[in-house]
Simulated scan of single mutants.
Amino acid sequence: MYQRTIAPTATVPDVAVLLAERRIGAVLVIDHEEQMLGIVSERDIVRCLAANGARMLEMTAGQLMTRAVQVANPGTTVNEAMQLMTVGRFRHLPVIDHGTLIGLISIGDVVKARIMQQDTVVESLTAYVAGSA
């Protein structure tokens, strides 16, 4: 099972412990057949706490999760992922390949990849200018 997943029957405290232990911002909720059902993020927990108070501690990941999850595939570019996340105002994007969960990228991953792309462009331009002089 992917390291950032939890069962729909897990309690919200279970989700919070997993987020804290792994130092991550979201977990995917998957069923026993490893099919993604939704996602639970730190934001979901805060919103649920505001709406439900202490009752939230008795709720499950299945009750709390966001069900309409946008996904990427291995061919999704960094720019496409950034656009999806920016427009959708979310920070985690599951990656699905032929119906199988293969990963979860965060906005931090996207920013890091974008910076690496920009560094490559700068290095190429610098080499070009230095070679032309």
Rank of each mutant, 00 (worst) to 15 (best):
I96C: 05
A81G: 07
I102M: 02
L84M: 15
A81D: 08
I107P: 12
A81K: 09
H92V: 02
P94R: 04
Q83V: 12
I105C: 10
H98E: 13
L101C: 08
H92P: 03
G99Y: 07
G108P: 04
P94C: 01
P94L: 01
I107D: 14
L104D: 01
H98N: 11
D97S: 01
Q83R: 15
I96V: 05
V95Q: 03
L84E: 12
V78Y: 12
Q83H: 12
P94N: 01
V78N: 11
I105H: 08
L93Q: 04
H92Q: 05
V95M: 02
I107H: 11
L84H: 10
H92D: 06
H98M: 07
I105V: 15
L104V: 00
M85H: 14
T100W: 11
G99H: 00
L84T: 12
V87Q: 15
V95K: 02
L104T: 02
M82N: 11
N79S: 13
F90D: 05
L93N: 06
L104Y: 02
G108F: 03
V78H: 11
V87T: 15
L93E: 06
M82D: 15
V78D: 10
M82Q: 14
I96Y: 05
M82W: 11
M85C: 11
L101S: 08
V87S: 13
M82Y: 11
V95N: 05
R91K: 09
G88M: 01
S106L: 05
G108K: 07
D97P: 02
I102H: 03
R89M: 11
R89K: 14
P94V: 00
A81C: 09
V87K: 15
T77V: 07
M85R: 11
T86V: 13
R91M: 06
R89D: 14
L101Y: 09
L84V: 10
Q83S: 14
